[in-house]
């Protein structure tokens, strides 16, 4: 009964969050598409033609960029602004669990990444000439990566003192998670310090798993990445659920 109520409340809150895109719609979709596409074009123009392996690296990297953009930057900024305007009060006085709200916020931001995914897929097919394989492993990798990213975005939002501070921190985080991590490159090609940094970064495992999944490799090939992502998602969700304060101190 309690579990049914939890899922029902999460679904209702999810729909309430998704309704936001009714008004931001086109603009949100453009931003969600432009960030990964822009990065992809930049890399293609500076590095020339891509081998098949390089092409998968670029496409998987761009899917991760989509997730970072929506789940860290957009979500962090949204929560920061909502916190500043005391928007959580509305939810905090309703009989809903914090985890329901966190899941709803995550789910709606994963949905926001979809236009970016589709654009990247089409572009990969048209420009890079490769086929993307979409199976259960791909969705699992995306959801687990998104959950970890969204936890980070949520933490940025709830710990920032103002909406503006959340904006700044989430932009810095975006830079750290995209360019200082093995998103567009194999981890072995990075300097030693960044390799160590990459080991503790969820995007490393997210990019690995997504890359393998879209290349059509069997799930056993990237099972370790999925397990590490699952552990990271669980820990980060637990932290973020405790981090949202229904009450002031």
């Amino acid at each position: 009964m309690a579990l049914r109520k939890f899922f029902l409340n999460t679904w209702i809150l999810f729909k309430m969050q998704v309704a936001l895109y009714r008004f931001l719609g086109l603009f949100t979709a453009i931003v969600a598409i432009l960030v990964p596409l822009g990065t992809l074009f930049l890399i293609l123009f500076t590095s020339g033609t891509a081998t098949e392996e390089h092409a998968y690296l670029l496409l998987a990297g761009n899917i991760v960029v989509s997730l970072v953009n929506t789940c860290i930057t957009s979500l962090g900024q949204y929560i920061g602004n909502m916190k500043e305007a005391r928007g959580f009060d509305f939810y905090a006085t309703l009989p809903v669990s914090k985890l329901s709200l966190v899941f709803a916020l995550m789910g709606s931001n994963i949905m926001l990444s979809l236009p970016g995914f589709i654009a990247v897929g089409i572009l990969g097919w048209l420009i890079l000439g490769i086929q993307i394989s979409i199976g259960p492993g791909f969705f699992l990798a995306v959801i687990l990566t998104a959950a970890t990213m969204a936890s980070i975005g949520t933490m940025i939002g709830v710990t920032s003192k103002t909406g503006q501070q959340a904006n700044h921190i989430s932009l810095v985080a975006m830079f750290v998670f995209i360019f200082l991590a093995p998103v567009y490159y194999q981890i072995e090609t990075l300097p030693l310090a960044l390799q160590w940094w990459g080991v503790i970064q969820p995007v490393t495992y997210g990019a690995n798993a997504i890359r393998a999944a879209i290349a059509g490799l069997p799930i056993s090939y990237y099972l370790v990445d999925l397990v590490i992502l699952l552990a990271m998602a669980t820990v980060s969700l637990a932290i973020v659920t405790r981090g949202i304060k229904w009450r002031e101190g």
Partner: peptide
């Protein structure tokens, strides 16, 4: 929380929802 309904001074969190949706979803929750 299960026994009280609170009308706060601001409903910023749901500024994007239609009036009908705000009321109906509050009831569902």
């Amino acid at each position: 929380r299960n026994q009280l309904n609170y009308m706060s001074q601001n409903i910023f969190a749901v500024w994007h929802l239609k009036v009908r949706e705000v009321i109906e979803n509050s009831g569902r929750l």
